[in-house]
Every structure is written in C-alpha cells, then in structure tokens.
Design a protein around this nucleic acid. Structure first.
Lengths: 155, 155
DNA sequence: ACGAAATCGTTGACAGCTCATCTACTGGCG
DNA sequence: CGCCAGTAGATGAGCTGTCAACGATTTCGT
C-alpha cells in the first residue's frame, strides 16, 4: 500500500486544468448574469425551470429533488427561501400525509418566463457560439460518456 | 426589440444538458471526497495546492487570488478561515504597507501532501479513465476554445 | 509637495450548501 | 391490531460565497 502517487502526465493535466477553468468561468458568469438580470439566484432558476417546463408547475417534493439531482435537504431549504419570496408555494398532499407538493405561483411563472430567454442568449453567447456544431455534439457525447462512467463508479 | 427567444434546438439542448449534468456531478463528487478524506473543503485544497505547487508556499494576497481566479473578498474570507484552522498564516509586506503575504504553515503542507495523491486518484477514476486519450485531449482543446472565446466576451 | 484617484485588502450582512438529526406518516409482518 | 422499519420532508448549526461599503496606503498629475 501507499504506492507512489500516479500524477497526471502533462497532457492530462493540461486537459484537466482547461476543463476545470472553463467550467468554473462559464458557470460563474452564467449565474451572476441570472442573478443580476432577474434577481433570482441560479438555484431559483433551476427549480422554476424544472418545475414549470413540463407538466403543470406542480410536483411532488422528492420528484423535483430527484429531477434536478439535489439532496432533499438542499431542496427543502431552497423551497423555504423561494416560498418566502413568493416564487413557489407548498401544498399538502391528500394521498400521503407526509408528502408535499411544490407549486409555482403566478409570480414564479412570470419570473421564469422573463428570465429564460435572457439565459438562453447567454448560453448561446458564451458556450454554443464558441464551438462548431460538430464540436458541440462531440462535447455532448464526451459529457454523456463521463456521466455514464461515473454512474458505474462508487460515489 | 423583444425578438422571439431563440431556444436551443434539440441537439444543442441535449449537449448542453449533458455537459451541465456531467460537470455538476463530477465537481460535486470530487469535493465531497476531498472533504470526507482530508477534512479540508475543496476551497482549502485549491488554495493550498496553488500556494505550494510552485514557489515557496508564500505569495502576495492578490497574486494568489488572481492565480485561482477568485474575487478578493472570497479569498480574504477563505484565508481568514484557513488561518483559524492553522493551514496558512498572514504576514505583513515590508515593501507595501497595504499588502499581505499568505504563507502555508507546516500543517498546511502536511494537509496538502496527504490529500493530493487521493485527489488525483479520484480525478483519474471519475474523469480520466472514462475517456480515451484522444477524447481527453479533444475535451481539453474544446475547453480551451470556450475559455478563449469567453475572454473576448463581455462579462 | 499636495490632493485625487487608484490599489490592497478587510469587514458585515446575507443567501446558499451540507451534515446530522428529528418528526410524522406509511406500510408490512406477526 | 400493534409494532417496527422505511419513507417524506423539515430544521438547526456551521461553513462558504457574494455584494457593497470601508479604511489604509501608494501613486500620479500638476
């Protein structure tokens, strides 16, 4: 045990560093934009987007949490804050006494409908437009591949 | 003005979604690992890594902040927390009365030296090993390209 | 040399995330 | 029925990140 660390070779390290910096810069800029332009946090945006995109803006708490792949505690805090700001509301679930529905309020719909087009523009401007269609689809395939690989890995 | 939103077409959206999910899952797992195995937060790791990698574990505050591309306020809070835990120390700068040096303590060195090999293993396991060398270098090139593109874009 | 502007870094308030713990309800099994 | 395991979700403490404002020093123009 305690084998010598297998450091990354220079090409691997270069690729990793570029990826990390790119991803951090991109996400950082996008979330600051959403925040500045809509007054919503990036998390608010994600929740409303997923809640309203398909369906009727109404979802079981844990279904929503699974959809966006968040821990339930994170979602619970998030919903509390958003409820405080009037973007969503909690509703009791008749079928299951423990359960709760999360519902987008009219203000929530308004917020996401105003924010979404701007957000798409920024995604285009910073990300999509940087690449040829081919590169974009390559990046998509590679991402999917990493994702599939991670699913097979512990933790 | 108020042109109709130009939504992403299905291939674009698929690529974007995969990328986002991949990146979130990957970063999330890596930082939980660092946290669990070394007791350091991902931010602690980044700071110590960059502070000790080249040079003598001693850097001007803003140089360090620029190196890791953080806002100075974030760095300041981070350094305060790390100093409290004994990982780094602040030192006055003789040349510039406003300035400060950040120095890695022996405990800081110990922490990063223990954590780094484990971290590399996780990067390999979750990321590098998912791809062929070709795919990895392609991802590196694409990342770099996005990065360069963003630098030319406002904010 | 002197005042204005720029630079270096800190601080406080507040929103967000994680982890552990807790309550309430359901559902299964004897 | 009655107990017990599992599920749904909330909560509190503590750490992290952001934004705006601030104090201290240096630099630059005149």
């Amino acid at each position: 045990m305690d084998a010598p660390p297998r450091w990354l070779d220079p090409e691997q390290k270069a690729a990793w560093d570029s990826f990390i910096r790119m991803q951090e810069t991109l996400i950082g800029r996008l979330s600051r934009r959403v925040q500045a332009e809509s007054g919503m946090s990036a998390s608010d945006y994600i929740v409303l987007h997923n809640l309203t995109e398909r369906g009727d803006g109404r979802m079981r708490f844990l279904d929503l949490a699974k959809l966006v792949e968040w821990e339930k505690s994170r979602m619970s805090h998030q919903v509390t804050r958003m409820a405080k700001r009037g973007l969503v509301a909690r509703e009791e679930c008749p079928d299951d006494g423990r359960g709760a529905f999360i519902v987008a309020t009219p203000a929530g719909y308004k917020a996401i409908e105003e924010a979404a087009p701007q957000h798409v523009e920024h995604v285009r401007r910073l990300f999509i437009d940087a690449l040829t269609p081919n590169q974009l689809s390559t990046l998509g395939r590679i991402s999917k591949r990493i994702l599939d690989h991670m699913e097979k890995q512990p933790d």
